[in-house]
């Protein structure tokens, strides 16, 4: 009969501990002394912040880009639109520009340029129609 290594606490206690209290690995020491709590909390805090920032950025990113594509999608048919619709589009472009100015995305420079182009075209067509 083969004796399997025992996993009972009694057997573990029977094994001589290779470490004295002062020599125990660092990991065990912080749990025991509580010195590990601040780094763990800090880690959790950073993780939560990252998740919140990512979700906020994604939500923000999706929103403005969808609006940009919808608004500038009208440029090729701008001449067929009613003055009331053109006025509405100009207003929406202005709001979008305000949102774009607040972004931290490096691409905002390009989207501001493009949104201004769309807004200016709508204004031009509106003026042409005497609006």
């Amino acid at each position: 009969m083969t004796l399997l290594p025992s996993r009972t606490p009694i057997a573990r206690d029977a094994t001589p501990n290779p470490y004295s209290d002062s020599e125990k690995p660092m990991k065990r020491q912080w749990i025991r002394t509580g010195t590990g709590t601040p780094p763990i909390l800090l880690g959790i805090l950073i993780l939560v912040s990252c998740l919140l920032w990512t979700s906020a950025t994604m939500a923000e990113g999706d929103g403005w880009k969808t609006d940009f594509e919808r608004l500038c999608g009208y440029t090729d048919i701008a001449t067929t639109l009613e003055p009331s619709k053109l006025t509405e589009l100009i207003g929406e472009c202005d709001l979008l520009l305000e949102r774009l100015q607040k972004l931290s995305d490096p691409k905002k420079k390009m989207y501001i340029f493009r949104t201004k182009k769309c807004r200016d075209l709508f204004r031009f067509v509106l003026e042409t129609k005497g609006g």
Partner: peptide
């Protein structure tokens, strides 16, 4: 397109 020339 339209917006390249109008109104710039």
């Amino acid at each position: 397109g339209c917006e390249l020339c109008h109104p710039e």
